[in-house]
Design a protein around this nucleic acid. Sequence first.
DNA 1: CTAATACCTGACTAATTTGGTAGGGTATTT
DNA 2: AAATACCCTACCAAATTAGTCAGGTATTAG
Lengths: 145, 145
Amino acid sequence: MRLSAKGEYGVRAMIHLALHYGDGDPVPLSRIAMEENISRQYLEQIFLLLRRSGLIYSVRGVKGGYVLSSPPGEIFVGDIVRVLEGPITPVDCLAENGARAEVPSCGKGEDCMARKVWERLRDQINQLLGSISLQDMMECKQAVK
Amino acid sequence: MRLSAKGEYGVRAMIHLALHYGDGDPVPLSRIAMEENISRQYLEQIFLLLRRSGLIYSVRGVKGGYVLSSPPGEIFVGDIVRVLEGPITPVDCLAENGARAEVPSCGKGEDCMARKVWERLRDQINQLLGSISLQDMMECKQAVK
DNA sequence: CTAATACCTGACTAATTTGGTAGGGTATTT
DNA sequence: AAATACCCTACCAAATTAGTCAGGTATTAG
């Protein structure tokens, strides 16, 4: 039940961008890497994913860098984590076949007793991560349950 | 944010034991492995951990097998997951130094904005997994929030 | 125009984790 | 004494993780 460094770094970097949102000019990756103590080349990989997902956009050239695509209030931790870590689900057996509920490897169907727990857990995690925006984090607001 | 097969198998196997709790005789591992569709030798590794943790005990010999150490109402999903997957924490920076709050690798201290999110997430997951017992799962009860 | 800055990309890699197997042992009971 | 079933160590292949390397391309300050 652990995020990888990718997700952790990604969230930190996005907070960093949020703090400079509205400054006028983009934040260079090298600066984020330095201040957040993350390898520049590794962070580039992370930003590649974030950019492709549309959460941020880039400006090339001398005074280039990265900018949030939306205001901090409209980007949620869950969005970031999903982009960097894939779908949030405690076990594979309920990953992304959605309402189909294809019979999983365990051979049990709807009557799998463990399944209900994992569903509840998944929903709670998603609900929590989907309710905290970058804005909330900047203001240290506790998200409302 | 995913459990490994170890945790998933472990919970399934423990539910299996719960269903036979009070039967009088222990459930052989080979039967659980077969009915749950898990490799016997892999399940042995899992049961080794569960036994050492005290959640189950074993009976050797011909009609041997495994038995829950406590009634199903007193064993919680969180206990099982913690034994098999280690402490439940979304990121390492808040793993198990407890109240010490040693300054983590990111170099930031208390004022790390991401940290609060991870703490909340950790607490919610722990609370949920700590509130669902094997008994609840057998009865398909939804744990009370 | 050109040098510097900064993004962009693919390939590679060492270490760790994961999900097992193999092959034996040991205790107990029928 | 033979069968059952737990016990334990060691090994392994594949995947993942957390990066590094070595370049490329776009833009702009001067």
